[in-house]
Design a protein around this nucleic acid. Structure first.
Length: 267
DNA sequence: ACATTGACCTGAGAGC
DNA sequence: TGCTCTCAGGTCAATG
């Protein structure tokens, strides 16, 4: 799940469950997920403190501690959060567990252990060090910013949307949705995008992310016109009912509708 | 600068 | 049922 909308929902979930409570204990079951320090040091660093606020940048969530350091959460391909009370509700594949003084627990769960957790002093410095481009959900990510980025890079649109150094937040799933809503073929070269198509992409980028967040990033709750619930082999286009096609772009499998997203369209 | 490939890690689902 | 194979929403490094 974890692209920008999912991570934003995780952040809201964190806010609703895990702020302003003393962290009694931290259990690290997947020590390799802890970066920059040992699992032991990580646990000892957090114990006794509390989380006071959160923010998100791209696919990263950050939780501010009462000493103003930040817990960084990255979810890889399979990560999510689960807040529960009784040990019997402990989710399978949980990698890190925070035990709060109110008796509840927050679990960072990941089947594939591709995510990462660490504590940093400074979020801006972290974003800088990770070489992340502008967050695509910020107000500052306006049409002008988007157009400038596309005009200063080359390559295929789907790869560009997914490149976190170019712009931060979009992954494989939502790039498919944005391209579908804009009627743009995933392999379209940036040089072949005219201004009107760039405007369409920007407009749809914003509306897709906003809509997804609004629906808690739950694929089943998305509008009927979205491709996400249909993106599998033999999937049907929700607009023209034609058969979707699978395509490899930049080593990732994308789905698109050859009728609604023709090659060599605008430009 | 961009594309391609493999690695990381491990479970789920399909096919035999 | 059990085994093997392929694929999976992310990122990183090496190579052309």
């Amino acid at each position: 799940m974890p692209e920008l909308p999912d991570v934003e929902v995780f952040r809201q979930y964190f806010n609703a469950t895990s702020l302003h409570q003393k962290i009694k204990r931290v259990d690290v079951r997947g020590p390799r997920l802890v970066h920059e320090t040992s699992a032991k040091d990580f646990a000892e660093t957090l114990a006794g403190h509390s989380f006071e606020s959160t923010r998100r940048y791209g696919k990263y969530a950050f939780a501010e501690l009462d000493d103003h350091r930040w817990l960084v959460l990255h979810f890889g391909m399979t990560g999510y959060l689960d807040y529960f009370k009784h040990p019997r509700d402990d989710p399978e594949y949980d990698q890190v567990q925070f035990a709060f003084s109110n008796g509840y627990h927050l679990a960072y769960v990941s089947k594939r252990k591709l995510g990462a957790l660490q504590v940093v002093e400074d979020v801006e410095a972290f974003i800088d060090a990770e070489d992340l481009g502008p967050d695509v959900y910020e107000d500052a990510f306006d049409l002008q910013t988007f157009r400038d980025i596309l005009r200063n890079h080359s390559g295929m649109i789907k790869s560009t949307l997914m490149n976190q150094s170019t712009m931060a937040g979009i992954g494989n799933i939502y790039s498919d949705e944005i391209l579908f809503q804009a009627g743009v073929h995933p392999r379209t070269r940036l040089a072949d995008l005219d201004d009107d198509t760039i405007r369409q992409l920007h407009r749809n980028l914003r509306s897709v992310l906003r809509t997804a967040i609004h629906h808690k990033a739950d694929p089943h709750e998305l509008p009927d016109t979205y491709i996400i619930p249909h993106r599998k082999s033999d999937g049907q286009c929700p607009k023209c009912e034609g058969e979707l096609e699978r395509i490899e772009v930049g080593g990732r499998a994308g789905y698109y509708c050859p009728a609604c997203q023709p090659e060599n369209q605008a430009g």
